[in-house]
């Protein structure tokens, strides 16, 4: 119940700064438009109706969806955590009878809720995911859930570097560059030469590229399971990092602070 409140507050915060939300969406929309027109021109002049198995109209959906996913998979927890460490408020938070990470997860969920709803609606209405039998639908839902949890754990693991770094703002452009290039936001990774095929199982690609292809119905059951396996693997890695780094971080924090 108390975590649900966190989620609600986070959603309210997103909605309260409507101006920022609208401008954020506007910027994204402009970027998506530019990329869409560029791709349509590429289809037009290459004379192909299919690039890496994606048709022009599917490419339009791909670009829109992957940009919505980029908004869902934000790196905000890093900056929130860093703020707590810098201000010394982390001690206060840790004394509360709640688990900080669980609370942070609900906060993450609340902030991303408007975009999650958009992704959910798109999956429900456009996507063939739920018309391919129960097993496929369940596997798809599992992949979405796993990937979401995995990415949150990844970001949380990265946020722990706040214990040792004075400034974490450089992570913002780095992570958005990674999502652009490795997450398939600038272009679907499938258009790259086959030598780069291994790239699609990196955490950013799982969150951006794979979830978009899933929505387009481009993933077979096997591919879903494979992606799910990778997501699980990355989640375990992130969890491992958290388990190892957290106690050391706390020690260095208490040594320096208070």
């Amino acid at each position: 119940m108390k975590y649900w409140l966190t989620c609600q507050n986070a959603l309210m915060a997103t909605l309260a700064y409507r101006g920022n939300l609208v401008l954020n969406l506007l910027t994204t929309a402009v970027n998506v438009m530019v990329t869409i027109f560029m791709w349509l021109a590429v289809y037009n002049f290459s004379g192909r109706s299919d690039i890496a198995g994606i048709q022009p109209n599917q490419m339009v959906i791909y670009l829109i969806v992957v940009n919505v996913l980029a908004l869902i998979f934000s790196a905000e927890p890093i900056f929130k955590f860093s703020g707590l460490v810098r201000s010394g408020n982390l001690s206060v938070v840790l004394m509360r009878p709640i688990n900080y990470f669980i609370q942070s997860f609900w906060d993450y969920l609340g902030r991303g809720l408007p975009f999650l709803v958009i992704y959910g609606l798109a999956t429900g209405f456009i996507s063939p995911v739920f018309r391919r039998g129960l097993l496929y639908a369940l596997a798809s839902l599992l992949l979405m859930g796993l990937t979401y949890g995995m990415f949150f754990l990844m970001i949380t693991a990265i946020s722990l570097c706040s214990f040792w770094l004075v400034q974490v703002w450089p992570l913002r452009p780095v992570l958005s560059a990674l999502f652009l290039l490795l997450g398939g936001q600038a272009f679907p990774l499938q258009v790259l030469p086959p030598t780069f095929a291994w790239l699609i199982y990196n955490p950013f690609s799982l969150a951006g590229n794979q979830l978009t292809l899933l929505l387009l119905g481009k993933l077979s059951l096997n591919q879903i399971l494979l992606a799910g396996g990778w997501a699980l693997g990355w989640a375990v890695v992130a969890l491992g990092i958290l388990k190892i780094v957290w106690p050391r971080g706390i020690r260095s924090y208490e040594g320096v602070g208070s």
């Binding site: 791709w39 021109a41 037009n44 192909r48 690039i51 452009p173 780095v174 290039l181 258009v191 790259l192």
Partner: peptide, 22 residues
């Protein structure tokens, strides 16, 4: 430099499918 490089790579991707656009 990083974001300029991304633009270059993206441009490279576009023109790997067609020699000219307009």
């Amino acid at each position: 430099v990083l974001f300029y490089a991304i633009e270059l790579i993206t441009g490279g991707v576009y023109f790997s499918f067609t020699p000219t656009i307009y």
